[in-house]
Amino acid sequence: MSRPATPTGPLRGVIPPLCTPLSPSGDVDTRSLRALVERQIEAGVSALFVLGSSGEAAYLDDDRRRTVVATAVEAAAGRLPVLAGVIDMTTARVLAHARTAAALGADALVATAPFYTRTHPAEIADHYRRVRTGVDLPLYAYDIPLAVHTKLPADTVLALAADGTLAGLKDSSGNDGELRRLLVRLRASDRGGQFSVLTGSELAVDGALLAGAHGVVPGLGNVDPHGYVRLYEHARAGRWAEAAAEQDRLAALYAITDAADPAAMGRSSASLGAFKAALHLLGVIDCPATAAPQTPLDGAAVKAVRHLLEEGGLL
Rank of each mutant, 00 (worst) to 15 (best):
R239D: 15
D248R: 14
G221S: 06
T295S: 04
V223F: 11
A213L: 05
A211F: 07
A235F: 06
A277E: 07
G227I: 06
Y228W: 05
A291F: 10
L282F: 01
A274M: 02
A252G: 06
Y254A: 14
L272K: 06
T290D: 05
T257D: 01
G221M: 06
R230Y: 01
H234S: 05
L210S: 10
N222I: 08
D261Y: 04
K276Q: 12
A260G: 15
W240R: 07
Q294K: 01
W240K: 05
E246I: 00
A270Y: 03
Q294S: 12
L272D: 00
R236H: 13
R249F: 00
E202A: 06
R230L: 10
D258C: 03
L279F: 07
A251L: 02
L272I: 15
M265P: 01
R249Y: 01
F275A: 00
W240Q: 06
A260W: 03
A213T: 07
G212Y: 13
G207Q: 11
V205L: 13
L231C: 11
S269V: 00
V205F: 12
D258T: 13
L281D: 08
E242H: 05
Q294H: 07
I285Q: 12
S269E: 07
S271Y: 11
L250P: 04
A260R: 06
W240C: 02
P296Q: 04
A255W: 00
T290R: 03
H280F: 15
A208Y: 00
M265T: 10
M265A: 14
G221P: 03
V217C: 14
E233Q: 15
A251T: 11
A237M: 04
V223A: 11
A289I: 00
F275Y: 15
L282T: 01
P218M: 11
Q247C: 02
D286S: 14
Q247D: 09
L231T: 03
L279G: 07
T295R: 12
R230E: 14
S268C: 01
P293D: 09
V205K: 12
A289H: 14
R236T: 14
Y228M: 10
P225Y: 08
I256C: 05
D224G: 03
D224Y: 13
R230W: 02
A259N: 12
A291Y: 07
A277V: 07
A243E: 08
R267C: 00
A278C: 11
A263M: 09
P218W: 10
R239S: 14
A252P: 01
G215Q: 05
G219L: 05
G212I: 12
V217A: 12
D248Y: 09
E246Q: 13
A260E: 06
D224A: 15
I256M: 05
A263C: 01
